[in-house]
Simulated assay, not measured.
Amino acid sequence: MADTAQHLDIGRVLNNTFGVIKRNPLIFLGLSFLMVALPQALIQMATGASAVGVDADAMTAMFSSPSMIGTAFGGWLLFVILSILLQATFIIATVKDLNGQAVNLGECVTQALGKILPLIGLGILMTLGIMLGLVLLVIPGLILALMWIVSSPVMMAEDKGIIDSLKRSAELTKGSKRWILLLFVVYMVIASVLGLFMMPFAFAGTVGVTIIGLIINTLTGAIQGTGIAAVYVDLRIVKEGGNTDALANVFA
């Protein structure tokens, strides 16, 4: 029977998010480190961005050198693709875990790779739509971001096309946008607390900044990727009742 509240349960999403990571730390934290934190650190070192916070000349050099600009763009493109692949992998792994199934890293990555091109197309369309909405007095962009937040999980779990994934996400998030926004605020507070704990490393200069980036990006990458999947699962339960059996069968 569906949840009569008919909106996202923040407590359940948080419990599921951190529970999944706790049960599979090597997969979620390890992948987040390899596919988000480490690439970001390497890009920063290649472009000199890691020194921007401690050396003003590094910022000038970064934006005045064509090679640096090219390296930054190439690194950014690689980072986006890796982030999309990571999100898709976490969606599959999260659903399997919440259904009590063993999480096989190889299977999750293989299934995610099979959807990488449609996911990239979805990401481009979402970005353009949200950016346009932000230009139009900000609020429309925020609404679109909340409305489309589970488009990627929809595409992975329900095998829908780009437009249908956006429509389905809008349907699932109806009535829960304020709760999703509140969940974002909770995650921001968590990220801020993590940042405070990492502050002492900042006094070690560039090395300290790099260490802070690796730790925070690993943690936030895992939490963000798992959290979006957990939001999708919770919205399915709220809107349609039952559990994650039907989703798990998709990834069987």
Rank of each mutant, 00 (worst) to 15 (best):
47 T>L: 05
49 A>M: 12
49 A>C: 07
51 A>Q: 13
52 V>D: 05
52 V>H: 13
52 V>G: 15
53 G>Y: 02
54 V>T: 15
54 V>K: 07
54 V>H: 09
55 D>C: 07
55 D>V: 12
56 A>K: 13
57 D>A: 15
58 A>L: 04
59 M>S: 13
60 T>W: 08
63 F>C: 08
63 F>R: 10
66 P>A: 11
66 P>S: 11
66 P>M: 12
67 S>T: 15
67 S>C: 03
68 M>E: 09
70 G>L: 12
72 A>R: 10
74 G>W: 07
74 G>P: 10
74 G>S: 13
74 G>L: 14
75 G>D: 12
76 W>A: 15
76 W>N: 14
77 L>W: 09
81 I>C: 14
81 I>Q: 10
84 I>F: 02
85 L>K: 05
87 Q>N: 12
88 A>C: 13
89 T>K: 01
89 T>P: 01
90 F>I: 08
91 I>F: 10
93 A>V: 02
95 V>C: 08
95 V>R: 02
97 D>R: 00
97 D>A: 15
98 L>S: 03
100 G>D: 03
101 Q>R: 07
102 A>T: 04
102 A>W: 00
102 A>C: 00
104 N>Y: 00
105 L>W: 00
106 G>P: 01
107 E>N: 12
107 E>K: 06
108 C>T: 05
109 V>M: 00
109 V>A: 01
111 Q>A: 13
112 A>G: 03
113 L>E: 01
114 G>Y: 04
114 G>A: 14
115 K>F: 09
116 I>P: 05
116 I>C: 06
116 I>Y: 03
118 P>E: 00
119 L>F: 10
121 G>Q: 03
121 G>D: 07
122 L>D: 10
123 G>D: 14
124 I>R: 08
125 L>D: 06
129 G>A: 03
132 L>V: 15
133 G>E: 01
134 L>V: 13
135 V>M: 14
136 L>C: 12
136 L>V: 15
139 I>K: 10
139 I>S: 08
139 I>A: 14
140 P>D: 02
141 G>K: 02
142 L>S: 05
143 I>V: 15
145 A>M: 07
146 L>E: 06
146 L>F: 06
147 M>K: 14
147 M>I: 04
149 I>T: 15
151 S>D: 06
151 S>F: 10
151 S>Y: 08
152 S>E: 13
152 S>K: 11
152 S>P: 11
154 V>D: 04
154 V>I: 04
154 V>G: 03
157 A>L: 12
157 A>G: 11
157 A>K: 01
158 E>F: 07
159 D>Y: 04
160 K>P: 01
161 G>D: 02
161 G>W: 03
162 I>Q: 03
164 D>I: 10
166 L>R: 09
168 R>N: 05
169 S>N: 04
170 A>V: 02
170 A>K: 10
172 L>K: 03
173 T>M: 08
173 T>W: 04
173 T>L: 06
